[in-house]
Design a protein around this nucleic acid. Structure first.
Length: 632
DNA sequence: GGCATAATGAAGTCGCTC
DNA sequence: GAGCGACTTCATTATGCC
C-alpha cells in the first residue's frame, strides 16, 4: 500500500512559503514584552470580533488612539473581548476606562431583558452548581421562583455533602491536606447571628454558602431590604464586586484578581495573608494524578468549569509542572481561570514526566488506550533485568530530558565499580555515587558494571510513540533526543483526550500549536479518532517532516496543513481556515518550556523568556477561534 | 557549518527533625 | 513553623571533530 495514495497533494498543504504567509500589523515585529504582546493580541482579537473586521480597520483603530492597555485591563477584569471592542467603539477613542465599563454594564442590563429561563440557568451555573441539577430545579419550581430554586440546589448540595464544592476541593491543589479542611470554610449554624430574623438568617446563610462573606451578605440584605429574593441579593453583590474590582485595580495590586471563583474567595479569607505575588499560589498535588488514574479508585468524574471556559472549541494546553513561582497562576489566569490538572506520567508508563494540563474537556468516561504501557523499567526493558544490581532500587525512570549522559560518565561509573567486582556489593559511598549519576542521567544497566543512557527508540517506547517515529528523514541523533525530550507522553494525553471519541464519532478538526513530533496527533490516532483536518504549527522543519511522514504512513484520510511559525499564523489566516473547513473542534498544544524548565541554568526567566512568551500566542489564537465559533 | 560531546547550578518541592 | 538535606528538572553553551 502506498502512503501517497491516502495523503496525496490534496491532503497535504505546506503553507510555509513566503508567499503564503501574511504578516499583519500585529505580528510583523516581535513583541517587546509578553504584556505588550497580549495587549496587542487582544486588540487584534477584539477588532476581529467587532464590526471593524478588516486588517486595515484594525490598524486604523490603534492609530485612532484606542489604548491596548485598556483592552488588557478590561480583559483581566474578566470581560469578553468582543464586548470590550463594542464598548470602546461606542464610547469613543478618548473614553476613560470607567466610561467603557459603564457601557459594558449597559450591555449586561440589555442581556438581562432576554429569556428569564436562560438567565436563571446562567445565574446558577455561575454560582458553580451542576447544569443538570439547575435545569431540573428550574423545571420543578419554575424559572420565576429563584429563591426556591436556590434553596432546592443548596439542599441538594447538602444532601450530597456539597458535591459541587467537594469536587472543586478535590481539584484545587492550592491547598495541602494539612492546611485547611473543607469543614473549616463552611459557616456553621453556631456562627449565625442569633439576633437576626429567620428570613434574614436564611438569606444570609444562603449567600454565605454561595461564597460571599457574612459581612457582605449582611450588608446586601440591609441595603436591598428583607423582602427581596435571593437572586436580587446576588445580583447586588456581583455588581458591588465589579465596582470594587475596578477600584482595586488602580489601588491595590494584590487584589486585582477576578473574583468570580467563589471557592477561592472563601479560602483567601482563611489562609495566610497574601504575599506580594499577584496570585494565590498553585500548589502541586501529591500524588500528582490529576483527576485520577485508569483502573484506580478515587476517580473524579465531574468538575465545574468557570463560565468563561465553557463552549466550543475544546482546548488542551500543556507545560512543565515545575515552573518558576507564579507561572501557573499566570497561565491559569489567561486560560479562563481553569485550574491546571497536574499529572506525573510515571503513573502511565515507566518514566516520570510532571506536567500541568489546562483544558475544558469533560473528565467523565475517560479510557486508556490499548495495549497499556509497561509500568516499570524491567517490564519496559526486560534485558536490563539480568544486569540490574540489587542495590539499585529504581523501578521508574526520571523525566526524559533533551540531553543524555556522556560516554565519559558511563566510563567513570564502570571504573568506580570494577575494583569491587569480586565483592557481594560495592561500598556504600560507591553505591551512592553510581545511583546519583544513574538518577541524574536516567541510566539503565546493559551489562556488568555497564550503565548506559536510553537510546532514542527506547525513549519513543516510553513516551508512547511508534517505533522509529523520529528515526531518519533528516533527523540527527541530537535532534531526536531534543524532540523526544520536548514531546507529550502519549498515553497520558490520550487518556485525557479519550472523552472526545464519543463526542465526535465522525472525526474532528484539530488546530495543533507547537506540534513538535506530533504527540497529540499520535494520541488521537491511537484513540482511533479520525482527524478530518489538522492545522499544525511547528517551528522545526525536521519535526514538521516527522508529522508529515506519520500522516502518510498511517494512511490518514484527512487534510494536513503545516505552518512554521505560530507568530505568522495571523488572525485573518485562522478566520480563513475556519471559514473553509468549518471551524476547529480542538485546539491543542504545549508552548515552549525553555524558560520554565529546571534544567535551564541560563535563562530560566519564566513566561517573559524569548521562547516561553509564545504562550501568549496560544492565547491569542485560541481566542480568535473561540470568538469565531461564538459568532457562528 | 553541522553534529556530537561534555560540562555547567539553581530553583523549587518534599519529607524529616526539632 | 523553621531549618535542613535529599531529590528532581520538556536546557544552554563551549568545544572539538569531520
Amino acid at each position: 500500500m502506498k502512503a501517497q495514495d491516502s495523503a496525496g497533494d490534496d491532503d497535504y498543504v505546506d503553507w510555509n512559503t513566503d508567499d503564503d504567509l501574511e504578516i499583519d500589523n500585529f505580528q510583523s515585529s516581535p513583541p517587546s514584552s509578553p504584556v505588550q504582546s497580549r495587549a496587542e493580541t487582544l486588540v487584534g482579537v477584539a477588532v476581529t470580533n467587532s464590526s471593524l473586521s478588516s486588517p486595515t480597520e484594525t490598524t486604523d483603530l490603534v492609530q485612532m488612539g484606542f489604548s491596548d492597555e485598556i483592552f488588557a485591563t478590561l480583559f483581566d477584569m474578566g470581560f469578553p473581548v468582543e464586548m470590550i471592542a463594542k464598548a470602546i467603539e461606542e464610547a469613543g477613542p478618548n473614553a476613560e476606562t470607567s466610561v467603557i465599563i459603564d457601557t459594558i454594564s449597559k450591555y449586561s442590563s440589555d442581556c438581562e431583558a432576554g429569556s428569564s429561563k436562560s438567565k436563571a440557568i446562567d445565574h446558577f451555573l455561575a454560582m458553580g452548581f451542576d447544569e443538570e441539577k439547575v435545569i431540573k430545579a428550574i423545571h420543578e419550581h419554575g424559572e420565576e421562583n429563584m429563591e426556591q430554586i436556590a434553596n432546592a440546589l443548596l439542599s441538594c448540595a447538602e444532601a450530597e455533602k456539597l458535591p459541587v464544592e467537594e469536587e472543586e476541593d478535590d481539584i484545587d491543589w492550592s491547598l495541602s491536606d494539612d492546611e485547611i479542611s473543607y469543614s473549616d470554610i463552611l459557616i456553621s449554624d453556631d456562627e449565625k447571628d442569633p439576633n437576626s430574623s429567620n428570613e434574614n438568617g436564611n438569606q444570609i446563610r444562603s449567600l454565605v454558602r454561595m461564597g460571599f462573606s457574612e459581612l457582605e451578605a449582611s450588608l446586601a440584605v440591609e441595603r436591598c431590604g428583607e423582602n427581596v429574593d435571593i437572586a436580587e441579593l446576588t445580583d447586588f453583590l456581583c455588581a458591588a464586586q465589579m465596582a470594587r474590582e475596578f477600584s482595586e485595580f488602580h489601588t491595590d495590586p494584590e487584589e486585582q484578581k477576578p473574583r468570580h471563583d467563589f471557592k477561592k474567595r472563601r479560602l483567601e479569607s482563611k489562609k495566610e495573608p497574601r504575599s506580594s505575588a499577584d496570585d494565590e499560589p498553585v500548589r502541586l498535588p501529591n500524588p500528582m494524578i490529576g483527576f485520577g488514574l485508569p483502573n484506580e479508585p478515587g476517580l473524579i468524574t465531574h468538575r465545574t468549569l468557570p463560565e468563561l471556559a465553557r463552549g466550543p472549541p475544546f482546548f488542551y494546553y500543556e507545560n512543565v509542572a515545575l515552573a518558576p513561582k507564579g507561572v501557573w497562576e499566570t497561565i491559569s489566569r489567561h486560560l479562563y481561570e481553569i485550574l491546571p490538572e497536574f499529572v506525573d506520567s510515571k503513573y502511565f508508563c515507566a518514566a516520570a514526566r510532571k506536567r500541568g494540563y489546562i483544558h475544558n474537556l469533560p473528565i467523565n468516561n475517560r479510557f486508556q488506550i490499548q495495549p497499556p504501557p509497561k509500568y516499570t523499567i524491567t517490564e519496559a526493558f526486560p534485558l536490563t533485568k539480568k544486569w540490574w544490581p540489587d542495590w539499585d532500587k529504581r523501578t521508574k525512570l526520571n523525566c526524559i530530558l533533551t540531553v543524555t549522559g556522556s560516554a565519559q560518565l558511563t566510563n567513570r561509573i564502570r571504573l568506580a565499580l570494577e575494583p569491587h567486582s569480586g565483592e557481594p556489593e560495592p561500598p556504600k559511598h560507591v553505591q551512592r555515587y553510581v545511583i546519583d549519576q544513574c538518577r541524574r542521567w536516567n541510566l539503565v544497566w546493559v551489562g556488568k558494571n555497564k550503565a548506559a543512557p536510553l537510546e532514542p527508540d527506547e525513549m519513543e517506547n516510553l513516551l508512547g510513540f511508534p517505533k522509529n517515529h523520529t528515526r531518519g528523514g533528516g533527523m540527527s541523533r541530537t535532534e531526536r533526543y531534543k524532540s523526544l525530550g520536548n514531546s507529550f507522553q502519549v498515553d497520558t494525553v490520550a487518556y485525557h483526550l479519550s472523552v472526545l471519541k464519543p463526542i465526535f464519532p465522525d472525526g474532528i478538526n484539530v488546530l495543533s500549536l507547537f506540534t513538535g513530533i506530533g504527540g497529540g496527533e499520535v494520541a488521537l490516532h491511537r484513540l482511533q479518532i479520525r482527524m478530518k483536518l489538522v492545522v499544525s504549527v511547528e517551528i522545526s522543519k525536521v519535526n514538521r517532516n516527522i508529522l508529515k511522514d506519520f500522516w502518510e504512513q498511517t494512511n490518514q484520510t484527512g487534510v494536513l496543513i503545516e505552518f512554521s511559525d505560530v507568530q505568522n499564523l495571523t488572525n485573518d489566516t485562522i478566520e480563513g481556515l475556519m471559514k473553509k473547513y468549518g471551524g476547529f473542534d480542538l485546539v491543542i498544544g504545549g508552548s515552549p518550556c525553555n524558560n520554565l524548565a529546571g534544567g535551564n541554568r541560563v535563562s530560566r526567566v519564566g513566561l517573559g523568556g524569548d521562547q516561553s512568551s509564545l504562550f501568549f500566542e496560544y492565547c491569542r489564537i485560541l481566542e480568535v477561534v473561540r470568538a469565531r465559533m461564538r459568532r457562528s
